[in-house]
């Protein structure tokens, strides 16, 4: 039996690594990869809770989270293709036209 604390520490470590990747990388492809790592950490937290309480809800929520991650990867890659088609670059800092 693995304690819940260790699983949650692993999940938050994965989430923080993904968040760091989103913040430090300016390449849109790497930002999408980092978002996938973040979602992976969230899914680990779901499975850990599922294991700790011996319920099946965590696995069902992880199914939904996996499909959501796939959906956002698809839409993000389609946006990336549009972006590359118009600007010929992948740097997302060039998107801030409003200087907000």
């Amino acid at each position: 039996m693995i304690p819940l604390m260790h699983s949650l520490m692993l999940a938050s470590a994965l989430f923080i690594i993904g968040l760091l990747g989103v913040m430090i990388r300016r390449n849109l492809l790497f930002v999408l990869l980092s978002i996938m790592i973040m979602m992976n950490g969230a899914i680990v937290a779901f499975i850990a809770a599922d294991h700790h309480w011996q319920q099946l809800d965590g696995q069902i929520m992880s199914l939904l989270a996996i499909i959501t991650t796939l959906a956002q990867a698809c839409v993000g890659l389609a946006l990336l293709l549009q972006f590359y088609h118009r600007r010929k670059t992948l740097n997302i800092d060039l998107l801030s036209e409003m200087k907000g």
Partner: peptide
């Protein structure tokens, strides 16, 4: 394999 060790085979 973490999910496997936690018993969530379907995931």
């Amino acid at each position: 394999s973490i999910f496997y060790s936690l018993g969530a085979y379907f995931s």
